[in-house]
């Protein structure tokens, strides 16, 4: 008799989780990693010690390069949005270069994200995590996030100590800098998300393109831009063009 009870208990314990899992029918989720590599042209960006030359033959070094990535959406047979995710990519912190999100299993043709922080989160009060004011990406006198921060030095800069300083932000009215970026995957390299597996998207952020995009940005003319306005909006337009996909790694079949 004792033996019976024992085996019955074991049976129930074994079967119950499976039954519960079945009844809940959770959608299958996989992990998507997005690895950003900041570069100048083809070479990885080096802070402080490398001197670069832009399209207008201006020489500069970079001491700080930080930007927000948020509102990540994958498009395929279905659209999937990463919930409540804000990331700060900081060149000085290699741990920040790869972000990780959970996405529903499926095959996707393109990725869309916002380089910056959406307007609603700009005026929702005290935030935490990547949006913590500790990260030095929040304007205290004119509330709002600095979406992108690029600092360095250039002999062509007429600002004090030849500094260059681009703090790009602004979330309201005609001067908002919110430009979502959409990047398509190659036909033969779509993104596949599988339950329990990790897929990786490699994205290059090429600083060289900040100087030459829809707007011609010359250090000699504009060594700094540190408040929302028409200039910030123009520079943000260039910034949106720095991203490109360099590779995809899907889980093996």
């Amino acid at each position: 008799m004792h033996k019976y009870w024992w085996s019955l208990t074991v049976l129930i314990l074994l079967v119950q989780p499976a039954v519960l899992a079945q009844s809940k029918k959770k959608p299958a989720y996989g992990t998507v990693k997005i690895a950003f590599t900041n570069t100048v042209g083809a070479s990885p960006l080096v802070l402080h010690d490398s001197t670069y030359s832009n399209a207008w033959n201006e020489q500069y070094t970079v001491t700080k390069f930080k930007y927000y990535i948020s509102n990540i959406i994958l498009h395929g047979s279905r659209m999937a949005k990463a919930g409540n995710s804000y990331f700060l990519i900081n060149q000085a912190d290699s741990n920040s270069h790869t972000l990780s999100i959970r996405m529903p299993a499926g095959t996707y043709n393109s990725i869309r994200f916002l380089p910056g922080v959406d307007s609603s989160r700009n005026c929702s009060g005290a935030q935490t995590g990547a949006l913590d004011p500790l990260n030095d990406m929040f304007w205290t006198w004119n509330s709002g996030y600095v979406m992108q921060k690029l600092e360095g030095f250039s002999t062509q800069s007429n600002f004090r100590n030849h500094k260059i300083e681009y703090h790009i932000g602004g979330y309201k009215g005609e001067h908002h800098v919110l430009r979502p970026v959409e990047l398509a995957f190659e036909d033969n390299a779509k993104l596949v998300v599988k339950q329990g597996y990790t897929s990786t998207i490699y994205i290059r952020a090429n600083l060289d393109k900040i100087w030459q995009g829809p707007y011609t940005l010359k250090i000699a003319d504009t060594p700094l831009c540190t408040s929302p306005g028409a200039m910030a909006k123009s520079i943000a337009g260039n910034f949106a063009g720095i991203f490109s996909i360099t590779g995809i790694i899907n889980p093996a079949d």
Partner: peptide, 16 residues
């Protein structure tokens, strides 16, 4: 009116 939410107001005088 530069401060858009009461919660972030203290950041201005604290850091100025």
């Amino acid at each position: 009116g530069g401060i858009n939410h009461i919660e972030v107001q203290p950041l201005a005088p604290i850091t100025a």
